[in-house]
Structures are given as structure tokens and as C-alpha cells.
Amino acid sequence: MNRSLLTSPRLYLTNLLTQADVTVNGTRPWDIQVKNNAFFENILTKGSLALGESYIDGWWECEMLDEFIHRILRHRLDRCVRLNPTLLFNILKARLSNRQSRHRAPQVGERHYDAGNDLFELMLDRHMIYSCGFWQGADTLDQAQEIKLDLICRKLQLTQNMRLLDIGCGWGGLVEFAARQYGVEAVGITISREQLKFARERCAGLPVEIRLQDYREVNDQFDAIVSVGMFEHVGYKNYETFMKVVARCLAHNGLFLLHTIGSNRTTHTGDPWFDKYIFPNGMLPSAKQLTTAIEKLFILEDWDNFGTDYDKTLLAWHDNFERNWPTLKKRYSEKFYRVWNYYLLSMAGGFRARYMQVWQIVLSQLGRNGGYTSIRCPRCSDSSK
């Protein structure tokens, strides 16, 4: 064991951070300013949970929190803090129980997505898309999300009167776009009552049905299926079940597009801070877990990774959050501000460090006759059809 760890947690962590060119109480914007000396021992005993909680409690500050996290993860310093009881407990829970069962699935809707439509309206783009935008050819968040929506529709090869299922439709932005721009009929499902109400209002008058429904309950037939930013809530014990539901509901010649954050390593639990404060029961799939789940069910037509675009998306959300905080603070607490500040900026740093990825995977059941043409670029003129 490192001698400095035994004699001084402060010395150990200070030396560790130096490897990432971070100085404790330094003068650069990514240097951490420690205001409570209990911070050092707390990090060594509780890991990432303590890092986030001590920020919420004001034990430390950082002018460029996203860059601080980027440097920690880019230099793999997270692997230098020993396995702690909190992490061991979370791993045990994930192994012994199905944390994303039909009974538990609504928890993330109640605790996160129902936080308030006012928050998300002020933070997100005009389509209310709560997933990574596509920034090639885009100058604004609205453009990045609209280009992404159009890319998804083109990858699915949507045409007039096709029937589309959106698993985890959020506030209805994708089904509304697909109905208006591509003339499809659509069904969107969500487990959030606030999203349900908002999506039904925005899609009124369109051939779009919004349901409060768990994905396991869907039995309809669809020409194309999409799921964007929802698979992170499915859980490794349910990956195969999810894929079997898609296979059951997808027409034999149809396409399924899965858009998800991906992990570089196979795990069986999520980060303990994010599990407690942001996305209860969430976890990121690895490539190995995904290919295992689709085996014998689908043919892999395309696998696209544009994870670096999430850094820019998160910073755009954070800019909106900061700019609108004077309005939001009338309803939300100062603790809420610090939680969401840490959430958005630490995620941005994680994607900048390539600690996480964003995958768009296109699957078919029988394989496309003549092959599938990959799409990587927005339309030459604009993102609308």
C-alpha cells in the first residue's frame, strides 16, 4: 500500500491529482479548491459518491468542474481509489435483485423525469430532446438536435404511412418530428406522467399515440422501432427481454435503431452518486452486453459512435440551466442547483475523456436485401425533409 495513503490521505490524493495536472488549491480554473479537510479521507473511503456529495455540501469548488473531471478520468485516477463498502453494496444489490423490474421501473420517472417540465423546457432545445445532439453542420443546440432527429429517421428509412414505435419517447419530440416530416403514424411510450401529459399536448392533431406503458407490455406490430436514451434504464438482467420485445413487435423487414450511452467496460451497476441523485437504478451497457443480447434475434446492420458530441450537448444544457436559474430558483433549492451543476458538468467531463460513448445501432431481423447503407452526415442543405 502507498505509504502516503497510510500517513496522510491529503498527501496521497494531492500526489494523485498531480498526475492529472490538477493542483489542490491551485490558481488554474481546473484546480480544485478544498474548503473542508475531511474531504480527503471521505474520498478514499466512499469514492465517487463522496466526490459528488462533498461538492453538494460545499466542501470543494472548481471554476471548470467539467475540465477537472475530464482530467481525473482521462488519467484513469478513478481506478486508483480502492474498492469501498458503498460500491461493494451496490454491486451486491445488482447481483441479487432485478433493480429495473416492472415494479421498480417507474422510479426513475417519478424521481427524475417528473422533476418539472418547466426545468426541462428551459434547459433543453425546442424539441425537448434529452439525449446527445449531433453537431456536425450545427451551430446551435436546436440545430444539433434536429439534425439528430433527421439522421434517426433516415437511418430507419422511414416513409409515408409507416408505423413507428418509440420506446421511451420522452416529451414526444421524435414522434412529432417523424409524423410531421416523414408522414408516419407513431406510438410513443413513457413511464413518466409529466412526459405523458406534455407529449400528448404537443402531438395533438397528429397520427401519434402516447402511452404510459412499460416496454414489456407492448404487443403491437410496427414497421420500425426506435429507442433513444432509454436503454440506460433497462438494466443488464433485462437486456435480452428488451430485445425479445423489439423482435416480437418489429415487422420482419423492419429496422430497429437503438441510441444509448455505452460503457467501455462491462459492469453490473451504475455510478453510486448518479444512482442516488440523478438516475435511480440506471446503468450503462457495454458492447459485449449488447451483442450478447441481440445474438440469435437480430443482424447488426450498423454501429455509429459520436460520443464526443455529448460533451458539447451537456455544456449547452448547462449554459441554459445557468442562464435560467434566476427563474428556476423560485421553485428549486440551492442544493438542487449544486446537484444539477455537478451532474451536467461531470458528465461533460466524462464524455470529453472518452470514459463513455454514444452509440446508434441499427438492427434488422432478416438482413436488408442488398445490404444496409450507413448514414453519417446531415443533409447537404438542411435537416428537414
Rank of each mutant, 00 (worst) to 15 (best):
M64L: 00
W60R: 02
D114N: 02
I69Y: 04
G52S: 05
Y113G: 01
I56H: 01
A94T: 02
H70R: 07
Q19K: 10
K46G: 12
R28H: 10
F68V: 02
G52L: 00
R28G: 07
L83M: 14
L49H: 14
N36G: 09
V24F: 06
R71W: 04
I43W: 03
P106K: 03
R74I: 08
F89W: 15
I56W: 03
C62N: 03
L73R: 00
L16C: 04
I43G: 00
T86D: 05
L77V: 07
V34E: 04
L73V: 03
T23K: 09
T18W: 15
N90R: 09
A94P: 03
M64N: 10
D21K: 12
Y113F: 03
N42R: 01
A105I: 08
L44I: 05
L96M: 14
R82V: 12
S101A: 06
L77D: 00
R82Q: 12
A50T: 13
L83Q: 13
T27N: 11
L87F: 04
T27V: 11
R82G: 12
T86I: 13
R95H: 09
K35F: 05
L17H: 13
T27K: 11
G52N: 06
G26Q: 06
I56P: 01
G109S: 03
H75K: 06
G116V: 00
Q107C: 02
Q107E: 08
N98C: 08
N42K: 03
M64T: 09
Q33H: 04
V34W: 10
Q107R: 07
L16G: 04
E41D: 15
L92W: 13
Y55G: 01
G47E: 08
F89E: 15
V22D: 05
L87R: 13
T23A: 13
T86Q: 06
T27A: 14
R99Q: 02
C80T: 06
F68T: 12
L83K: 10
N15S: 12
H75N: 08
L51W: 07
H70W: 08
D78N: 07
L88M: 09
N36I: 06
R99H: 05
F40H: 09
L83W: 13
D31S: 07
R79T: 13
L44N: 13
Y55P: 01
T27Y: 08
L49M: 10
N37V: 11
F89T: 15
N84F: 10
